[in-house]
Design a protein around this nucleic acid. Structure first.
Length: 512
RNA sequence: GGUAUCGUGGCCGAGUGGCUAGGCAGAGGUCUGCAAAACCUCCCACAGCGGUUCGACUCCGCUCGAUACCUCCA
């Protein structure tokens, strides 16, 4: 299991060679959604980012256990004085049981992630299903002397923790600064120190989501579920922990502190954070109210959208940017992604047919078995070097902190080659063709996780019919019967089928 | 105010101490019955000001600007 994968570790702020603790096994934990609203574009970014990581690790041969939690404990709305639970509030507004809300949006999340071709993680644990683990985790922190109880709530003692450890090592914060910059907030009087965070919170009478504990009927603190469930499913030490950059502080910072306090050591070797999607230069987020849901993207039903965008367009759009860069949403950018993606898949179809038809490659004068393809044949140049270069550059890009934009740029080099071959401007040996095909399938399907959306009903019947129709058109063209040939083309166009004439006859594809 | 990230051509977005990103859009051309598709060519940018260097878009400093986070939104 020797790879040359490097990934950016937020903890060290540098790229590090990926060396899992127990190869070939790899543990990865990623912060999932809080299920109290429809998934939006902001949710798609981390899901796709870590799907890319998951897929590439699998491709490299690692045995990956990928855990992504579902936060179905509502925690609190910070801008409401009374501190209302997010899920409970939604439940109240919709007159539902809180768990009905959580279930509904969990299902919605799965539906949309499936549409984006995001692979399901190995385990998707719910916070509500791990109360025992969370309570035990609090006990351990208390036993270690870093938790204190006040009125049925338990808080983490950051000042004490910071004497032996460094609170702020992940986000680059200094405790003194945190203390001096703390905002005045309601209901903080129970804490010894404003920087302390809750491990267990006693439920107010109106708080519906509550569980029994040694301290009170209440609910777990906001950072606890990840510590508890990460430890439960990946052990006290695991390889990768991911999430959005907005979780860096205080969420992940506090998670580190909790694990250090409870277990006596940190748990995570590599911390990875994806950047935000912005809209008009601003983070797209639930709390800002400027989000566009995935449902709206897929149907085009949002005033900010000029049209509907398919799931793969969204996925491709996200993969065209490096995961650590901000990505600015605009109709122009999405339309560019849509067209680029279409071109990529058109080339893949051409590539596919090359093999099926036997193509002209073999009789172009290239000795199939000759590794180097005879140079004496005019117009026949060995492409194996170029294909190998594309392939290698794709691997180098992935190895360099999952640089999907570089992979895509390289694949377009391949697109150009494929189309040139199709135009009979360049030629491939059988070996070249195999390698090229394999490279595209590996990177486009397996690693980038893209899939064609055009051939949904590409049944044998349709294929046969289309072949027949195009044959008829071809023969009318041969007779210069343009009326018939154009009638066929226009008629098909009305059905959103595009006819593309090439040197060897015509092709077709769905979509305008 | 603090911490962090960043500022690239019409748009989106990579990357590097000296040498091509890529996609989309635009212009011209080839091909074609026409159209589409495809291919070729062109548009050679790196916030500003200093500094280091033989040489910086790439390193350092400053300025300006943007975004995120700063304790209960994950």
């Amino acid at each position: 299991m020797e790879s040359s994968l490097f990934l950016y570790n937020t903890l060290s702020r540098s790229k590090e060679k990926f060396e899992p603790l127990n190869p070939p096994f790899t543990g990865m934990y990623v912060c999932g959604p809080t299920v109290y609203g429809d998934p939006h574009l902001g949710h798609a970014r981390p899901a796709i980012t870590f799907d890319l990581v998951f897929r590439y690790l699998l491709h490299l041969g690692y045995k990956v256990r990928y855990v992504r939690n579902i936060t179905d404990v509502g925690h609190l709305e910070h801008d409401l004085d009374e501190g209302e639970d997010k899920i409970a509030k939604k439940a109240r507004l919709e007159q539902l049981e809180p768990m009905e809300v959580a279930q509904y949006y969990t299902d919605r999340y799965f539906i949309f992630m499936d549409a984006l071709n995001v692979k399901r993680p190995s385990i998707e644990p719910r916070a509500s299903g791990h109360m025992i683990e969370q309570i035990e985790f609090v006990k351990k922190i208390q036993d270690a002397g870093y938790g204190y109880e006040v009125n049925g709530s338990v808080y983490f003692d950051i000042e004490k923790y910071n004497k032996k450890h460094q609170y702020g090592k992940l986000s680059g914060r200094v405790l003194e600064d945190l203390l001096s910059n703390t905002r005045e907030l309601e209901g903080q009087d129970e804490k010894r120190n404003p920087a302390d965070f809750a491990l267990w919170k006693k439920a107010q009478p109106e708080h519906i989501m509550r569980w029994p504990s040694p301290w009170s009927e209440g609910f777990p603190g906001w950072h606890l579920e990840c510590s508890a469930m990460g430890t439960r499913y990946l052990g006290e030490n695991f390889d990768i922990h991911g999430g959005g950059m907005d979780l860096l502080f205080p969420h992940h910072e506090s998670e580190i502190a909790q694990n250090q306090a409870a277990l006596g050591h940190e748990s995570v070797k590599y911390w990875m954070h994806n950047n935000m999607i912005t809209i008009n230069g601003q983070k797209m987020g639930k709390s800002l109210g400027n989000f566009i849901t995935l449902d709206e993207f897929f149907t085009g039903s949002n005033a900010a959208l000029a049209q509907a965008y398919s799931p793969m367009t969204i996925r491709f759009f996200i993969l065209q940017a490096h995961y650590r860069s901000t990505l600015d949403f605009s109709n122009e950018a999405l339309q560019a992604a849509e067209k680029g993606l279409k071109r990529l898949f058109a080339a893949m179809e051409v590539l596919d047919k090359m093999q099926d038809a036997g193509c002209g490659m073999r009789d172009a004068g290239c000795g199939m078995q000759d590794a180097g393809c005879g140079m004496q044949d005019a117009g026949c140049h060995p492409q194996s070097e170029e294909i190998k270069k594309i392939r290698n550059t794709c691997y180098e890009a992935m190895d360099d902190d999952f640089s999907s934009p570089m992979v895509i740029a390289n694949l377009f080099e391949g697109v150009r080659l494929i189309n040139s071959v199709n135009d009979k401007k360049e030629f491939l040996s059988a070996d070249d063709l195999t390698l090229l095909k394999q490279t595209f399938e590996t990177f486009v399907y397996d690693i980038l996780g893209l899939k064609s959306e055009l051939s949904g009903d590409n049944s044998e019947y349709i294929k046969g019919l289309m072949e027949l129709v195009l044959e008829i058109r071809q023969s009318s063209r041969a007779k210069k019967d343009w009326g018939t040939s154009d009638k066929i083309r226009d008629g098909l166009a009305a059905l959103k089928i595009t006819v593309k004439d090439g040197k060897d006859g015509s092709n077709w594809e769905l979509g305008k």
